[in-house]
């Protein structure tokens, strides 16, 4: 249901190691939820205790299914681990830009961080060599886009954007 569903399924009988690792994560979260619920009041603890126990039990079943090759097909999922190798550098740049953007915009200001982040992402999403003219057009478009949404938020929707050290 996400992308390229046909070639992303786990063939029947093949061990699903990525699924097993993911299930270990959920097992840990389930156990943590269950155990920490004992430090809460009865009213607040009952639901997390139940859900934590259910999640841990289901995760154990999924781990068993994954390592025995009975995990089944998964229609809604992202790219497989092997497919992630393609363009890994660009993927990591995007992750780093998004993380930096989220952390820095309250400090530096929404407009400046957004413009810088958008320019880096523009370069990350561009694969062909750009002529100076085309580069100028793309940079101008990014500037117009950031200005438009900034104006929309501050002046039309009355949402105050963080101005930070710059603006």
């Amino acid at each position: 249901m996400s992308q390229d569903t046909d070639n992303q399924t786990t063939p029947a009988g093949e061990k699903d190691w990525a699924g097993a690792v993911g299930s270990v994560f959920f097992l840990i979260v389930g156990l943590y939820t269950f155990v920490t619920s004992f430090g809460m009041s009865d009213m607040a603890a009952m639901f997390p205790r139940t859900i934590g126990a259910v999640m841990a039990a289901l995760a154990v079943l999924q781990i068993l299914a994954s390592v025995t090759g009975r995990s089944g097909k998964s229609l809604e999922r992202g790219s497989s681990v092997a497919e992630q190798a393609e363009g890994l550098g660009r993927r990591l740049v995007l992750v780093a830009v998004m993380a930096g953007w989220a952390l820095l915009f309250p400090i530096i200001g929404m407009f400046v961080t957004s413009f810088i982040a958008c320019v880096i992402l523009m370069a990350t999403g561009t694969f062909a060599r750009l002529s100076p003219l085309r580069l100028g057009i793309l940079l101008g478009t990014v500037l117009v886009m950031v200005t438009f949404f900034y104006f929309l938020m501050t002046n039309v929707l009355n949402i105050p954007m963080p101005r930070g050290l710059l603006f």
């Binding site: 830009v97 982040a117 990350t124 990014v142 950031v146």
Partner: peptide
Amino acid sequence: PKGLLVPLIAF
């Protein structure tokens, strides 16, 4: 182009 679509969606 992706060079504009990516920053647009991210923004």
